[in-house]
């Protein structure tokens, strides 16, 4: 089983070409880093970034932060070597850009399998994440998400999507509602995680917070970040609040008590417990525990 279950609130893109960025980005405590070999890297420096990637994966202890690699597009002449370097270095996962079909996922997976065999890594140990960057990709979200056992999640990439949709980027994110909803439904149906696109206006903290609140309420698992300062804010919004944690504790405590006492009707804080609350309460406490803000024993 390739896909590991863990908290992935933030995934920060790092331009692998830049030594200063990749040497110790774990100090910002993101849940995941994405070493970028694609858009951030200048054409003439693809080789240099790839070798830096390999040496970083191999020699820099990322202190438990999950390491992903965004490879170049499947139709480029760079992707094979990108995957070989990433797998040889021992990356936890590969993010495939511009994914439009399930066949592409299968093709990437086959390349990863070949690399795993070549470099003596357990076959199937490298996860995959697909970035949906076009209307076709969004339409095929469910097929993409279920195309392969390696699939950990799907991520929206709004730049190209908005362009091809003839839409305008808005502060409210009106143009992304369709894509966000569609891919989220697909991800949940497929049982994989869902990640939202980057927020490019890095100086606009208020706008960033609003967008985070929106995608959290929609049900996203996390967000792609482009600046280290976005990590703390992302965690702040994605973490359950103190009130949510307290409520979740009460719900689960009531469930436990009822099991012991055989009481049929549950009430918490004076209200009858809806069965739907229990799952949400468990999810919140698990998230809080993974985030290090809940130390209790209820989950």
């Amino acid at each position: 089983m390739a896909v590991t279950n863990r908290i992935r609130r933030s995934m920060i893109f790092l331009n692998t070409q830049r030594a200063a960025l990749v040497k110790d980005a774990f100090v910002y405590h993101p849940d995941c880093v994405i070493f970028d070999l694609e858009d951030a890297v200048a054409e003439g420096e693809k080789d240099s970034a790839r070798i830096q990637l390999y040496q970083t994966l191999k020699h820099v202890d990322y202190q438990g932060v999950e390491r992903w690699v965004r490879v170049n597009a499947l139709d480029s002449d760079l992707v094979n070597e990108d995957i070989r370097a990433a797998v040889a270095g021992g990356t936890e996962g590969i993010r495939l850009p511009k994914t439009e079909t399930a066949a592409e996922v299968k093709e990437a997976s086959a390349k990863i399998t070949a690399a795993e065999k070549e470099f003596d890594r357990p076959v199937g140990s490298t996860m995959l994440m697909a970035a949906l960057e076009s209307p076709l990709g969004v339409m095929n979200a469910y097929e993409i998400a279920t195309a392969d056992d390696r699939m950990m999640g799907i991520a929206l990439s709004a730049g190209d999507y908005t362009r091809t949709m003839h839409a305008k980027r808005t502060v409210a994110g009106t143009e992304l509602f369709g894509a966000r909803s569609q891919m989220l439904i697909a991800a949940r149906a497929a049982g994989v995680m869902a990640f939202d696109t980057v927020y490019t206006d890095t100086d606009n903290e208020e706008g960033f917070k609003k967008e985070l609140q929106l995608i959290k309420d929609m049900g996203f698992d996390g967000k792609s970040c482009i600046n280290p300062k976005q990590i703390g804010i992302t965690h702040e919004i994605f973490n359950p609040s103190a009130a949510e944690i307290k409520h979740a504790e009460h719900v689960l405590q009531a469930v436990n008590d009822s099991k012991e006492n055989g009481v049929g009707v549950l009430t918490v804080d004076g209200k009858m417990v809806d069965v739907a609350w229990v799952e949400g309460a468990q999810r919140n406490l698990k998230l809080a525990k993974a985030a290090g803000i809940y130390k209790g024993a209820l989950v």
């Binding site: 040497k23 240099s48 830096q52 390999y54 040496q55 191999k58 020699h59 820099v60």
Partner: peptide, 8 residues
């Protein structure tokens, strides 16, 4: 630079 960068 760290070793990994010099090597790279």
């Amino acid at each position: 630079a760290l070793d990994c960068t010099i090597k790279a």
